[in-house]
């Protein structure tokens, strides 16, 4: 099911995230791999799950194969596809493949640079960028490849993109979002923001784009994780106040505290946007409790 159908019905959309492992996932009659199992834990609470594409530029099971596997286990995948590892032929080919294999949603991303991954000597591709990919994908939906050649069958993919409300200068980020929308973007998922006022200001600026925005929520599991993100993950900043709140409780209570803080943040955030994208990093079990608590705050 395409997420765009849910947005059209004014559904407040909830998504999770699955990170394929470094390894093959042939089932051989056994149980689902752990990353699928984590998604299955929240199956009844989310509309779809993102399947990341060599996340962090670390080589892993391909996102398309993992997306198909995710679908086989009854979850709706959002196939993340990056420009880092594919030229324009491969991107179009993979989008055709995705639709052929039953994928309905894609998230078109630039991709983390090779230099932050585990194959630092690889040749980065970046033949096209995320805006161009969206335009190309929209063309495939319209029945043409990027050279104007007719397809025997058009794709039918909902096209998503990423946005970063933390970006400075914010107006430059807005310009890029405008270009993404003009290229064919139908929904956004954002990087996490831990300051509601900052997200509010961002939403005021992007409201005129008329495209649903899903708030990205990375659950901070410990003060150490906050420090790690601030020092190693560009584009996300965990404020000191947030970290201090976590640091004020015993380690055994981190999960309880993180759940409470996430709920408080999302109570403020939910009314401003059209959905929430959870990136729980192993703590997907808190999502049901969080959703129960914030459901009254979903916009009508």
């Amino acid at each position: 099911m395409k997420l765009t159908e849910l947005f059209q019905k004014k559904t407040f959309v909830i998504t999770g995230e699955v990170g394929p492992v470094k390894g093959c996932s042939r089932l051989n009659g056994g149980p689902p791999p752990d990353y699928i199992q984590e998604a299955l834990n929240i199956k009844d609470h989310v509309h779809a799950v993102n399947v990341t594409d060599n996340q962090g530029a670390a080589m892993r099971l391909g996102a398309l194969a993992a997306s198909v596997l995710t679908k086989q286990f009854g979850l709706e995948p959002i196939f993340q596809i990056t420009c880092r590892d594919r030229n324009r032929l491969a991107i179009q080919s993979d989008l055709l493949a995705a639709c052929t294999l039953g994928i309905d949603n894609v998230l078109c991303l630039t991709g983390d640079h090779i230099k932050i991954g585990d194959h630092k000597s690889a040749k980065p591709v970046f033949d096209i960028d995320s805006v161009q990919m969206l335009k190309i994908a929209a063309g495939l939906n319209a029945g043409q490849d990027m050279m104007g050649n007719q397809l025997s069958q058009a794709t039918n993919l909902a096209l998503g993109a990423a946005a970063n409300p933390n970006f400075e200068p914010l107006d430059l980020q807005i310009i890029k979002m405008e270009k993404k929308v003009a290229a064919g973007c139908e929904f956004f998922q954002t990087q996490p923001v831990y300051e509601p006022r900052k997200f509010e200001m961002f939403m005021k600026k992007v409201e005129r784009l008329g495209v649903p925005v899903m708030f990205g929520m990375v659950v901070i599991k410990s003060p150490g994780m906050a420090t790690f993100i601030n020092e190693n993950v560009t584009g996300i900043t965990v404020p000191e106040a947030w970290t201090n709140q976590m640091a004020g409780v015993p380690k055994a209570d981190y999960k309880k505290k993180a759940t409470a803080m996430t709920i408080e943040l999302l109570k403020e955030i939910a009314p401003m946007c059209q959905g929430i994208h959870f990136m729980p990093f192993g703590w997907s079990d808190i999502i049901p409790e969080v959703l129960d608590a914030i459901r009254p705050y979903f916009p009508q």
Partner: peptide, 14 residues
């Protein structure tokens, strides 16, 4: 670093 033509990536910070 990514030769992007239509604006910055999400990895740009400060």
């Amino acid at each position: 670093a990514k030769s992007l033509l239509n604006g910055p990536c999400g990895g740009s910070e400060n």
